[in-house]
Nucleic acid binder design. Structure first.
Length: 890
RNA sequence: AGGCGCGUAGCUCAGCUUGGUUAGAGCGCUACCUUGACACGGUAGAGGUCAGCGGUUCGAGUCCGCUCGCGCCUACCA
């Protein structure tokens, strides 16, 4: 091995992360074959919004998606991870409008065309940002298939879907109450309204009844009384029944309206039992208006001011109007009461303005017919939600779904392909038309664009070239897995399933993994105002992409939020360093004659080699199992434990004398104990296990594993290597048992040395007793290792007699006596031992009581009873030996 | 108003599906150690009435019921 290939002493991720990414991408490893004989595995990225840079939640999702796709790729799947971005209509438009406002201009001043130029420039900048960040994280996306929701091919798919749904009667245009943002000046869907519980006022006022008397109503929105067209009471309410059919006189406007009986709207027990009805400004009142044929009077302008229907109040902003109306009612002596009232107020998801239920002509998707197949897809198991408790939420939403308002009064998005003539005909068409399909008159296109989520809903189709029967559609639809946040289960996931099922008869993916939210170290939601936002790129800069990835994956317990503590990330950077150093140590002792693992015959190896191979095989099985069930936390935990504890702490320590230096390093050197391990086998196993472990780790930590494997002379880049699979070839229960026993003995000796206050290096004598044949042979074979790890200068395995005054105890089922140098226990240590004895006695009592329980012996399974018996026997022995030690020295 | 999730070591979390040795991990903490890669290290250790109450069971952190606390989602309460 020439020195230029030696791993540098210092682990510096910056020195190789970018280099590896470029090599992978250039090699074409990210791009699948089409067609291919390999089974496909497909992940479509949840396209980030081109609103800005990626946040830590994206980093989490990118990490998990990349982990799975790399794993599947290595397993031999034709793996596609298709990247892209979303134009994010309203969200992006709001950002650019803010920028324009700073420049003292506005989109209206610019005009539609120039505004869209600005939008596209913005998009280019942020799209590039996003792909740079994805690359920095090591995301193995197929960039040759990168998509953007406003690309021509995707736009065509969107238009096709719209036209088809229109022709099927599943898209329609209607004049009805929708959610309106008076700041964004657009309609919103129900999902885009965020409800916040706020303390507001509740005011009572009286409507004079025509012909005498009054009727008192309560409201949280006094200003809407300008649009009232009825007062409703419960038809069975004795207090008001006689008033039904009479009219009330509007106190502030020159009109009157009826008192109606309505059992649906009115709860006689609430408030005064009489309700003002404003059909144009409240969904319930709208429905009431429909039932009673009431007039719907809109009193608001699009930007939230009172319009000409508000008489003297015209021109006032909503809140000002509220005050003015209350004042006017006060002056007329009609105010009857006021109290605070907590209730949900709808806010615009993007700009936080209070939304208005607003009467408007909009386009809608008829949701129920689309929801049915989507429900069935999950119920039948065609789509699996992970964790599965999300299914209940999913069902609940789809079972109660209302029609979806899809038109937006924005400029940034897919323009609605509807054309209107003056005669009022509508032409919906795949192609831009100039003449009405009905009457031939000139037409103009609808000014509005589609809800971003309408195009997102088509993402699995549009990215693969639908509606054409493309090679990509054939090769990759339906896709395999979607990894996304639970917060867009309704916005996106449900709607993709609806559209996929409707247009292809197949749900767009087989599995959906819903991640939690990344929070700060104290579990607080990250937000700019709190100042606790963590930037993924800064973290990569500080810790390296692999450590960031490992941390996020290790924290990703199913269905839980992730409290991200930078100290945790430091810990996993240490893990990367540990791996690096272990590899350096192994590498510096290689001679170049090492065999590959598959060339080794497990039966011919010594116990430490057999053991690490067996434990590694268990780890391989565990990792594959973990990735397959999306237990990223579990997989990372197992890999961490294997590398650090099993490989570094035990195997390398057991291998050290044979890897390095001339002697075997044991204090027992020269003694006639222990078997000779073949140095070449040790080197081969150390190198082979390390290389395979790197492959095993590669999906989580792609760069460092490639870098190390490259230096160790791995035959091919890990990205295209085979993922380790457990074959059972190295399974070895006997070796696992033997080394576990040895470890227990070593730990016991170390513990006592420490207990007695001797320096770590102090050599001790050790006598192992009461061993059966197999264990006796195994521990004899490993006596050099045992001696070195425990710091033993004199070792007798299977000793009949032990020196007087030695400490006697039990570890791993082996009775052992430790000979202390000064031959005497001091007071403090005697106390500790006495305390240990007490504990043993208590445990023994418990164990015996359990065994004495007839119910337990009769009903518990035999192996459980047997194990309990074993345990009692061990405790008994330990008790005896401890007493022996203590009493012998009195 | 419904629905869901959570409450386990100082902190953040596994374990609960399929009940059974001594309830685990990381970080933090204590003591000792610069032992042939690694002080971003090694060794040893302290620390838990598994939110509370009740039930099922030979046996409950794990299953069932109730209570308390925290978080989230859906919803038309004037």
């Amino acid at each position: 091995m020439s020195s230029e290939h030696l791993l540098p002493p210092r682990f510096d991720p910056k020195s190789f992360e970018e280099r590896w990414y470029e090599r992978w991408e250039r090699s074409g490893a990210f791009t699948p074959e089409v067609p291919s004989s390999k089974p496909p595995f497909v992940i479509l990225i949840p396209p980030p919004n081109v609103t800005g840079k990626l946040h830590i939640g994206h980093a989490l999702q990118f990490t998990l998606q990349d982990l799975v796709i790399r794993w599947r790729r290595m397993q031999g799947h034709n793996a596609l991870w298709l990247p892209g971005t979303d134009h994010a209509g309203i969200a992006t438009q709001v950002m650019v409008e803010r920028e324009l406002a700073k420049e003292g201009t506005s989109r209206h001043a610019l005009g539609r065309e120039r505004f869209l130029e600005r939008m596209w420039a913005w998009k280019e900048k942020y799209k590039d940002n996003i792909s740079r960040q994805a690359r920095a994280l090591g995301a193995s996306c197929d960039w040759t298939r990168e998509r953007f929701t406003l690309d021509p091919i995707l736009s065509r798919a969107v238009r096709h879907a719209f036209v088809t749904l229109y022709e099927e009667g599943l898209i329609y245009r209607a004049h009805r109450l929708i959610n309106w943002c008076p700041r964004c000046l657009t309609a919103l869907s129900d999902l885009e309204v965020v409800h916040k519980d706020l303390d507001g006022g509740m005011w009572d006022f009286a409507y004079p009844v025509d012909g005498g008397g009054e009727i008192v109503v309560s409201t949280t929105r006094p200003e809407t009384m300008l649009g009232d067209t009825a007062v409703a009471v419960h038809p069975d309410d004795e207090r008001y029944r006689h008033l039904i059919g009479r009219r009330v006189v509007h106190p502030l406007l020159p009109r009157s309206f009826p008192i109606v009986g309505d059992a649906v709207l009115v709860d006689p027990a609430f408030g005064t039992g009489a309700v003002k009805v404003t059909p144009a400004h409240d969904p319930e009142d709208f429905a009431t208006g429909e039932r009673h044929g009431l007039e719907k009077i809109n009193i608001l302008t699009e930007d939230g001011h009172i319009n000409e229907n508000g008489g003297l109040f015209a021109g006032l902003e909503r809140m000002a109007a509220r005050k003015a109306v209350l004042q006017a009612l006060q002056e007329q002596g009609l105010r009857r009461g006021e109290r605070t009232h907590r209730h949900a107020v709808g806010h615009c998801q993007r700009c936080d303005t209070v939304v208005e239920p607003y009467l408007s002509r909009q386009w809608f998707v008829r949701a129920r017919p689309l929801a049915q197949p989507a429900l069935e897809a999950v119920r039948s198991g065609e789509v699996r939600l992970i964790p599965d408790f999300w299914a209940a939420t999913y069902y609940n939403w789809l079972e109660n779904i209302l029609d979806w308002c899809i038109s937006r009064q924005l400029w940034w998005g897919h323009r609605i392909p509807a054309f209107y003539c003056d005669a009022g005909h509508t032409t919906v068409s795949m192609d831009d038309v100039t003449a009405c399909a009905t009457c031939g008159a000139p037409v103009r296109q609808d000014e509005d664009v589609l809800d971003t989520w309408f195009s997102s809903a088509l993402w699995p189709l549009s990215t693969l070239g639908w509606p054409d029967d493309t090679p990509d559609m054939r090769a990759f639809y339906p896709t395999s897995l979607l990894i996304t946040g639970f917060d867009i289960l309704f916005f996106w996931v449900a709607r993709m399933i609806m559209m996929g099922c409707h247009f292809t008869g197949k749900a767009p993916f087989a599995e959906v993994h819903l991640t939690g939210l990344v929070r700060d170290a104290r579990g607080q939601k990250m937000s700019k105002t709190k100042g606790n936002v963590m930037d993924p790129l800064e973290l990569v800069e500080q810790f390296g992409a692999d450590a960031v990835r490992f941390t996020l994956a290790a924290l990703a317990s199913p269905g839980r939020d992730l409290p991200l503590d930078p100290r945790r990330m430091e810990g996993y950077r240490s893990f990367a360093t540990k791996l690096w150093n272990a590899a350096r140590f192994v590498q510096m002792n290689l001679t170049g004659d090492e065999k590959e693992l598959h060339e080794l015959k497990p039966g011919k190896l010594a116990l430490p080699e057999r053991w690490i191979l067996a434990v590694f095989e268990e780890t391989i099985a565990a990792a594959n199992q973990a990735w397959g069930t999306y237990r990223f936390d579990e997989g990372c935990r197992r890999l961490y434990q294997f590398v650090w504890n099993d490989f570094c702490d035990w195997y390398v320590e057991m291998a050290k004398p044979l890897l390095a230096g001339a002697g075997d390093g044991s204090p027992l050197e020269g003694a006639d104990a222990g078997e000779r391990r073949c140095r070449r086998d040790v080197r081969s196993v150390a190198r082979g296990v390390l290389l395979e472990a790197l492959a095993l780790l590669h999906p989580v930590m792609p760069s460092i594993t490639e870098e190390i494997a490259g230096h160790l002379g791995g035959r091919e880049p890990l990205i295209t290597a085979s993922y380790p699979a457990a074959t059972g070839r190295f399974q070895d229960a006997a070796a696992v048992q033997a080394v576990a026993t040895m470890q227990a003995v070593v730990e016991e000796v170390r513990s006592y040395r420490h207990l007695v206050g001797l320096p770590p290096g102090t050599p001790l004598g050790l006598y192992l007793r009461e061993l059966d044949g197999g264990l006796l042979a195994d521990l004899t074979a490993m006596s050099r290792e045992l001696g070195r790890l425990a710091g033993i200068s004199r070792l007798e395995v299977g000793a009949e007699v032990v020196p007087a005054g030695s400490v006697r105890t039990v570890a791993g089922g082996v009775a052992l006596a430790i000979e202390l140098p000064d031959g005497a226990l001091k007071g403090a240590e005697r106390q500790r031992m006495a305390k240990e004895l007490e504990q043993v006695v208590v445990e023994l009592q418990r164990a015996r009581a359990r065994l004495a329980d007839l119910g337990f012996r009769e009903r518990a399974p035999a192996d459980v009873v047997h194990a309990a018996g074993q345990r009692a026997a061990d405790l008994e022995r330990k008790e005896g030996l401890l007493r022996e030690t203590l009493e012998a020295r009195v």
